[in-house]
Lab assay of single mutants.
Amino acid sequence: MSIQHFRVALIPFFAAFCLPVFAHPETLVKVKDAEDQLGARVGYIELDLNSGKILESFRPEERFPMMSTFKVLLCGAVLSRVDAGQEQLGRRIHYSQNDLVEYSPVTEKHLTDGMTVRELCSAAITMSDNTAANLLLTTIGGPKELTAFLHNMGDHVTRLDRWEPELNEAIPNDERDTTMPAAMATTLRKLLTGELLTLASRQQLIDWMEADKVAGPLLRSALPAGWFIADKSGAGERGSRGIIAALGPDGKPSRIVVIYTTGSQATMDERNRQIAEIGASLIKHW
């Protein structure tokens, strides 16, 4: 067993022997301040990774656009098919120029040779490549099948209805392509620590998230040296922004954090800054 596999296998073990965790309302004060600064709703939840206990939450059962955070769930569904012998990570998928959609920095470079399922998941999570996500959605049967996968996990809230990039439209009061912070946090925890996926697939999923290259201005910008984070960000229309993450000190994750916002007129930089400040408060009061 590799060191990384050992780390993920012992996530519940280490967490069980940690000192009790206590909620700190100071972080919620910052979440509410972010709402004021952005002029928009902000949803927040913080779960203990081992027990699933909610440590703090704000608007945990209000719907927010998922945006690209759905790509972690998508690759979880792909990995479940791999575990069941219905898919192979090494299978190569070929596609054409007509398949390319807006923001496809990886797939646009491989029109000639195609990409493997493993490479597509890596591109979808680490670079948020939209064509990679659409190609992977095709392998599982489309958005409705991802929703069905989530329902089978016990998540009857999260739903995907459309493809990239239309799913980022974020129309107010439109339930399409949305989740709730509580539902997303619980589902992410199941994917990373539950028995739904094999140990190898859980490790692969967290490795992809740990290698995320496009979430630097968010929670990662607030992390002290030595902290662990595996995350996936999302951005959408109407001032929408979000991030889902597993993080913790001492090089291992111990909490799940989900943050979503929508309806702001603020710039992307300002949305990023507010999420980073929430992260800084979380870490300060850990």
Rank of each mutant, 00 (worst) to 15 (best):
A200T: 12
T139M: 10
S264Q: 06
L282D: 01
L218I: 05
D269P: 10
G52K: 06
L188S: 06
D99Q: 13
Q265N: 10
L205N: 01
D113A: 10
F70I: 06
V117F: 04
N130E: 01
S233E: 01
E277Y: 08
L191E: 03
E108C: 07
N168H: 05
H110E: 07
G234P: 00
R189L: 10
D48S: 08
K71N: 00
S51T: 15
G234D: 00
E175W: 13
A266G: 13
F17Y: 11
D212N: 08
Y260I: 09
G251F: 08
M66E: 02
L111W: 09
W163M: 13
T107D: 01
G85Y: 08
S68K: 00
D212M: 03
E62K: 06
T69A: 03
I244F: 03
M184Y: 08
W227F: 08
A133R: 00
S281R: 12
L205K: 00
P65H: 04
A133G: 12
A266I: 06
L49D: 02
H24I: 10
A40I: 05
Q88C: 10
I125Y: 00
R159S: 08
E164D: 01
S281L: 12
G248V: 01
N98C: 07
K32Y: 10
G52Q: 06
W208I: 03
T116W: 02
R162L: 05
E108D: 11
A148T: 14
M115H: 03
F228V: 07
L120F: 04
S122R: 13
A183M: 10
T261K: 03
V72N: 01
L282K: 02
R238A: 09
R7T: 15
T193L: 11
G226H: 11
A245P: 00
C121P: 00
N130F: 00
G90C: 09
T69P: 04
D113L: 08
T138F: 10
L219S: 03
T186F: 15
D36G: 15
R159C: 06
G76R: 00
L188I: 13
I171R: 12
A222H: 10
D113G: 11
L47R: 03
L223K: 07
D161N: 08
L192F: 12
D99V: 09
V78I: 10
G141M: 06
V101I: 10
I45L: 13
A222F: 08
L191F: 12
D33V: 15
M180R: 12
R238C: 14
D231P: 04
A276F: 12
H285A: 09
R189C: 12
I243Y: 06
D212Y: 03
A123R: 01
I125L: 12
A124F: 00
P224H: 06
T139C: 09
R7N: 11
T178E: 02
A280W: 11
A185I: 03
P165V: 09
E237D: 14
D177T: 01
L150Q: 05
G194L: 09
L218A: 04
L199C: 15
V78H: 03
A124C: 08
L49G: 05
K284T: 15
S240A: 13
S201F: 04
